[in-house]
Amino acid sequence: MRIVFQTFENYMGTGLVVSWFLISAVYLFYCEKRKSRRIIFVYMPLAVLLLFFNPLCSALFLRMAEDEIYYRILWLLPVLAGIAYTVCHIYSHTEGKRRMVFVFCAVAVIAFSGKFVYDSPYFSKAENSYHVPDSVVHICDAIVVPGREVMAAFPLEMVQYVRQYTALVCMPYGREVLTGFYNPLQAAMEEDTVDLAELLPMARAYKCHYLVFGAEQDFTEEPAGLGLEVFLETDGYTVYRDTAIELIVPQM
């Protein structure tokens, strides 16, 4: 049951908006006469909440699905429609100047109860129409070969965007390394001073045609002496072509 309450707490976030919805449901229980509205905004949400907090149901659900998506049952609560309907219901039962004062206060209270979505630090201005970083676009455009796939190892910050941009670039490790999976090649790629003697056998085992490093990264040995040619320098990254891995370009 601890997971269930924790999930509800997470879903509530700062708490006020969901509280307004619950208060709305109580208000409509007393003030709404039409059965159809009571079913949608009072009884059905109550049934959903009873199911959500029911230990048997939660145990069954958690057996079938992951803990971290249990909160989605709460999407069945008509939070938006319930609060908006209640505001309109109260509005229709007030008269004169008080109406406009109520609307102004309701809108202000709802806005202050929530949090402006676009304030999230995860939002940033799009660099291009693809909505992936320019650096990914420039590097991928340079390394793709028509008619076949190429293998390239990228720095961690680019990993999740590469295959959103093109399926023609394959990678030895993907987004899973961002969620805690350890990959020794990725760990070696991220070193401030890259140990090429350790890294290259792993990269060649994956048949990486290209290796992408930050321009500020150093190497224990001279890359050119180990078969790595500078292919491209762009957006603060250096792309090396490993000449030991053959790259046959199909005749189109």
């Binding site: 976030g13 700062t14 939070v79 908006a84 309109c88 709802i110 979505v117 939002f123």
Partner: peptide, 27 residues
């Protein structure tokens, strides 16, 4: 119109939780 206005405010100020449906709509 008022109903729709309140919906818009709730959606735009839906960043109070990363799990809310309105947050999913915009992100």
């Amino acid at each position: 119109a008022l109903f729709m206005l309140v919906i818009q405010i709730l959606v735009i100020f839906g960043g109070y939780s990363i799990y809310s449906a309105q947050n999913f709509l915009l992100v």
